[in-house]
Simulated scan of single mutants.
Amino acid sequence: MPELAMVRRYEAAGFRAWPASFVQYDGTWVIRLTAGLPAKRLNSINPLDPGDGSNILDRIARAERRFDAYGRPLTFRISPLAGANLTRHLDRERWLSFSESIVMRLALDNAHLIGVMDQIPMKDIGRFVSAALQVHNMEPAMRPGLSEVIGSIEPEAGLFVSKEGDEPVATAICVQDRDLAGLFEVATKPELRGKGFGRQVVLSALKWARHRGAREAWLQVEADNAPAVTLYRSLGFADVYRYHYRRPQAS
């Protein structure tokens, strides 16, 4: 079991690095909603104190009204900070569990960055979003929402794109929050995976962050994304904790 203080540190950094457009607290539950993007991280209830397990039915009902107003499915993001009372309630109600993710970290003093290409991050959010939509194969309708989220990041954010010729082949966002460097939206075009482009863009982002004073890198990756997990572990990233999502079964 990870130290809860460490989990809280990464959870707080994640909220700052990937900000939702609407945030409301109900006790120590953080309700995050974003009209422009359907991503689960941006549209979920995030419990932050294992001891906060009172009035669960009423609080879920209040949150459900918020989610309905945004047209989002009611979703909990369950980290080690979710308490046993809440978990037992969701189990009794037979809420579905899905999309387990791993939070990983790497001390940048241990990162092998000698010989890694120096890359200057993009300044133009529009150009980066165009590249990200292409690499992720996302619908053009996602452009405004993704642009809004990136533009709302308060810590320093480096926008990285690897190209083959003029074509973007891999992307990453590195958010430096004091001594932490968080990696987000790391992706490689599916047909070009396994050729080193993802490794290249991640290492360039880590080198940039270390030059700016970051001491530790961290990221979140879906547990069933075996190629990505293998890549990160080969770079020296180690598991810190896991989280998953829960939704009520369709009636």
Rank of each mutant, 00 (worst) to 15 (best):
160 F>Y: 07
194 G>M: 14
183 L>F: 11
159 L>C: 03
158 G>A: 05
167 E>L: 13
149 V>I: 11
186 V>S: 05
135 V>W: 01
135 V>C: 07
163 K>W: 12
150 I>F: 08
158 G>P: 04
151 G>N: 12
183 L>T: 05
138 M>E: 13
179 D>H: 09
186 V>M: 09
191 E>R: 12
141 A>Y: 02
183 L>H: 06
151 G>Q: 10
192 L>S: 11
165 G>T: 12
143 R>D: 07
129 V>M: 04
145 G>R: 03
138 M>T: 03
166 D>W: 08
128 F>N: 00
191 E>H: 12
185 E>H: 12
189 K>S: 11
181 A>D: 06
153 I>Q: 09
168 P>W: 02
128 F>A: 05
144 P>G: 06
191 E>A: 15
173 I>F: 03
139 E>P: 06
129 V>I: 10
182 G>Y: 02
156 E>M: 05
193 R>T: 06
141 A>Q: 12
156 E>T: 11
148 E>F: 07
130 S>I: 00
162 S>I: 10
165 G>I: 10
157 A>S: 13
155 P>S: 03
152 S>E: 08
143 R>F: 11
128 F>D: 01
177 D>W: 04
166 D>Y: 02
164 E>K: 15
149 V>Y: 06
133 L>E: 02
160 F>D: 01
137 N>D: 06
140 P>F: 11
139 E>A: 14
192 L>G: 14
187 A>T: 13
165 G>C: 12
162 S>C: 12
186 V>H: 03
181 A>W: 02
168 P>I: 09
156 E>C: 15
186 V>T: 04
146 L>P: 05
183 L>P: 02
167 E>R: 15
190 P>W: 09
134 Q>G: 08
174 C>E: 00
149 V>R: 01
130 S>Y: 07
166 D>H: 14
174 C>A: 11
153 I>H: 10
190 P>H: 12
134 Q>F: 07
183 L>E: 07
142 M>S: 14
134 Q>D: 14
172 A>D: 05
162 S>G: 03
128 F>Q: 01
178 R>F: 12
142 M>N: 09
178 R>G: 05
134 Q>H: 13
160 F>N: 03
155 P>F: 01
185 E>S: 13
151 G>S: 11
193 R>C: 03
133 L>P: 02
140 P>G: 05
133 L>M: 07
134 Q>C: 05
156 E>P: 03
153 I>S: 07
172 A>R: 01
174 C>Q: 01
160 F>E: 00
186 V>D: 05
145 G>S: 07
194 G>P: 08
179 D>G: 08
167 E>Y: 07
170 A>V: 07
138 M>L: 15
137 N>I: 03
170 A>K: 00
136 H>I: 01
194 G>C: 10
174 C>F: 02
171 T>A: 05
185 E>K: 04
194 G>Y: 13
166 D>V: 11
142 M>R: 14
178 R>A: 10
190 P>I: 13
141 A>V: 13
189 K>T: 10
133 L>V: 09
180 L>D: 04
165 G>S: 10
183 L>N: 08
161 V>Y: 00
184 F>E: 09
144 P>K: 15
180 L>S: 01
143 R>K: 14
158 G>V: 09
192 L>I: 08
187 A>G: 15
183 L>G: 07
